[in-house]
Design a protein around this nucleic acid. Structure first.
Ligand code: MN
Ligand code: MN
Ligand code: ZN
Ligand code: ZN
Lengths: 154, 154
DNA sequence: GGCCTTGTTGCAACCCGTGGCAATAAAGTA
DNA sequence: TACTTTATTGCCACGGGTTGCAACAAGGCC
C-alpha cells in the first residue's frame, strides 16, 4: 500500500539489474541488517544470521557484506584493534574517536570532520572516507589523569 | 669506544630495571628490529625472527612487541585492512593516508597533522596518537579519474 | 517446463593474531 | 654455587576474516 517495493524487493532488483543474484542467504542478511542499527561487527552479523538460518557460513556473509558495501548499503570501518565494524544505516556518515586508556568511543560527525576533510582535499586532493576513520589517543579525562599513550613511557 | 653501551645492553638494562627479563627470544627480535626500518607488519617480524631462530613462536614475538611498545621502542598502527604495522625507529612520528582505489600510501607528518591534532585537542581535549592514524579515501589521481569510494555506487 | 550460463555457496585450508596454562629459566640473593 | 621467585616461553585452542575451488542454483531464454 504505502510503498509498493519493500526493502527486499528494492535490493533484489538492484542486484538483478547488475547481473547479480537474489539468494536466500542474502535475504537472511538483509533481514538482519533491517533489524540492526548503529555499529555491528562482522562476527555479530554472522551470529545473527545464524539465529535465523543455523546453516549460515561466515564466508558467505562476508562476501555479501562486500557486495552490499559496493551498493552503499553498509559501510565498514575498523575498531582500534583493527577489527571490522559495520555502520548500518547511519543517520549521517561519521568516524570514530577511541581512547586507548579507558576504551571510550565517540563519534566524529561531518561538522567536526570538516576541518580535516577540507585540509586533505586542499593540500593533497585527497578525498577522505570519514566512515573508515578511527582516531586513537587519550580522552580529556584520561590525559589529564596522567595516563600515557601506549609507548610514551620511554 | 664511541658508546660504551650497545643498543642491546641499553635495552637489557631498561628491562631489568623494571623487573623484566632479558631473554634470547627478545634479543633475536631486537636484532631484527635493528636491521629494519620504516614499516613492517607483525607477521614479517615473526618471519625475520625465524630466519635467525627457526624455533621462534608468534605469541612470544607479539608479546615482546607489546613490551617494546610500552618502552617506546616501536609503535604500531593499522593498515587499511586493519592489520598491524609497526613503525621502527621512525624519523618522526607520522600517520598514514591510503588510497582505496590504487592502494597508494603516503605519510602524514606532524606538520600536516597539526590542524587535526590541535582541533581535537581544543574541541575535545583529546590527544591524538598520530602514529596510529590511517586515513583511507581516494588520492587526487583516483578521485579525478572518477573512481569511487567503496560504497558510493548507490 | 527444460536448458544454459555463470554468479554464488559451502568447504577446507590458511593467515593474523590473542589468551590460558603448565613448564621453563632469568636473575636477585645467600 | 645453590636456592627462590616469578617473568617468560611454548603450546594449543580459539576468534575473526579471506580465498581457491568444485558443486550448486538463480534466472534469462526458448
Ligand atoms: Mn591498534
Ligand atoms: Mn577497511
Ligand atoms: Zn579515556
Ligand atoms: Zn589512488
Amino acid at each position: 500500500m504505502m510503498s509498493s517495493a519493500s526493502s527486499a524487493e528494492q535490493l533484489r532488483d538492484r542486484l538483478r539489474s547488475r547481473g547479480l543474484r537474489w539468494t536466500p542467504q542474502r535475504r537472511t542478511l538483509l533481514v538482519v541488517l533491517e533489524a540492526a542499527q548503529g555499529h555491528v561487527t562482522g562476527a555479530e552479523l554472522v551470529e545473527r544470521c545464524r539465529a535465523i538460518d543455523p546453516a549460515t557460513t561466515p564466508s558467505t556473509v562476508y562476501r555479501t557484506l562486500d557486495v552490499l558495501e559496493d551498493l552503499g548499503i553498509v559501510q565498514h570501518g575498523h575498531g582500534a584493534d583493527g577489527r571490522e565494524e559495520f555502520h548500518v544505516r547511519p543517520e549521517q556518515e561519521h568516524g570514530h574517536l577511541h581512547c586507548a586508556a579507558c576504551g571510550g568511543t565517540w563519534e566524529i560527525d561531518e561538522r567536526e570532520a570538516t576541518t580535516i576533510v577540507n585540509s586533505f582535499r586542499e593540500e593533497r586532493g585527497f578525498e577522505v572516507d570519514l566512515s573508515h576513520v578511527t582516531v586513537v589517543g587519550l580522552c580529556r579525562e584520561c590525559s589529564s589523569a596522567g595516563n600515557q599513550q601506549p609507548g610514551s613511557s620511554a
